[in-house]
Amino acid sequence: APGQQPFVTIPQEEVAQQQQQRQETQPLNNAPVWREVRSGQGITQIRGVETGVLVQSQGETWREMRNGPVTFYGGILMVAVPVLILVFYLVRGPLKQHEPDTGRKILRFSAWDRVIHWSTAISWLILAITGLIILFGKYVLLPVFGYTVFAFLANLSKNLHNFVGPYFIVSALAMVVTYAGRNLPRAYDLQWLAKLGGFFSNKEVPSGFFNAGEKLWFWIGVFLLTIVVSVTGLILDFPNFGQGREAMQLANVIHAIGALLYMAFGLGHIYLGTIGVQGAYHSMRYDGMVDEAWAKAHHEYWYEEVKAQQKGSVQAAGAVGGGEPQRA
């Protein structure tokens, strides 16, 4: 009889026929029916998601993926990236600005630029930390804090993660729109990439408003991975649309992998935005202004353009940061 579930059934004539034939040739063998148990969709009076499915074997695959490679390699990644950054920092130190500050400031990030950046960044950080607690807390925090404290943390994490997630999506999309223009690829980006920005040679390769590394962060990280974690995150976050377990499992694995990559990438960005590049933090943090010397050191082409524009129009300075002038 029909509940909500039963209405998805298909007449199972075929199995029945098989079964009838089987009864004639091998009277005591119900094999066709039992095969149906594994593959088929049954009927049940219980409403809900996939209640008609008796055994779902993908669950086991998902468990193996999540508790296996995702946790294992993800864990390695989460340890390895900070370690590598630390080593790099210790060995190379921060990227320095070779010439002293001029005292002349130019505007790099408008107020909106900064607001949207931090809105995204802070929500991202919350997601990252809470996500990590969900994924690794059991191995890392539980033994330290015990069940009581950890459960509190985990619960907080889960709820924060689930509510901040959608906020992050909105924020990140706004950020993508805001920064996309300045992140369009340029021919000189290739050069920057070929020389790895000069990070290892201590001679910075000139770049536009953003260098190719930042652009990669923008397109692969902020753009692509946001989409990945957002789509999958939404699938996980809104189970009330009746999506099946397979969708959830898939979403979870992709989400976790995407998130891990995102975090690894993000760590690099954060490093460069803080201690990795001397002075970078200031442009994002305080008034959006940078010293001309800084601009010249790290974004030479942009600096030149700003200068050129300033010559053309005195007021132009105020408009800087709105875009990178065209260059052949």
């Binding site: 009889a1 029909p2 509940g3 998805v8 007449p11 009076q45 219980i46």
Partner: peptide
């Protein structure tokens, strides 16, 4: 366990009436 009144119809009659499950 039973939230809807229903009628059991053979697929043939259902198809003839243009009715789906």
């Amino acid at each position: 366990l039973q939230q809807d009144m229903f009628v059991e119809v053979n697929p043939r009659d259902a198809n003839n009436a243009g009715v789906r499950n």
